[in-house]
Amino acid sequence: MSRIHITTTVNGEAAEFLTDPRETLLDVLRNQLGLTGSKEGCGTGDCGACSVLLDGVLVSSCLVLGVEVQGKTVETIEGMATDGALHPLQRHFIEHAALQCGFCTPGILVAAKALLAQNDNPTETEIRYWLAGNLCRCTGYDKIVRAVQDAAAEMRGAA
């Protein structure tokens, strides 16, 4: 099968790869670019563990083909901490014990960041519905929702 050459931007850096047209963006990130922070929990768009931002829009990278990111920008969990400083969401997730196994965590952090980018003061219900596409089997979501609320409050205070 002939492979296609793609150039793109991942976490602010230029990236290029050759991909089989059947490979997903998630495959490419994990297997070709070595960015294994995005996880595959289902491969069918149901769990959100593979969440990334594509040109700023929250997507399930298992539902995007690698060939689709030509010329676009991709943001993954690996790009969330900047200059060694954790994003407030990352810090509050640790402090709130909002992760147990941590497998859902990268996807939830990316999704929560996308929420706060468009709503800096979400209600509990808004958080729960926004994150409804991100499955967590360990926590029952309680501490996740609280961590997002506290991170949002901190970010509002800082702004």
Binding site: T36, G37, E78, L86, Q90, F93, I94, G102
Partner: peptide
Amino acid sequence: TRPNRPDGLDKVTGRARYGAD
């Protein structure tokens, strides 16, 4: 007490290595 877990940083940054990684 409730200190931060030692594996927390790896898990919020995507560095933690799971089975498929």
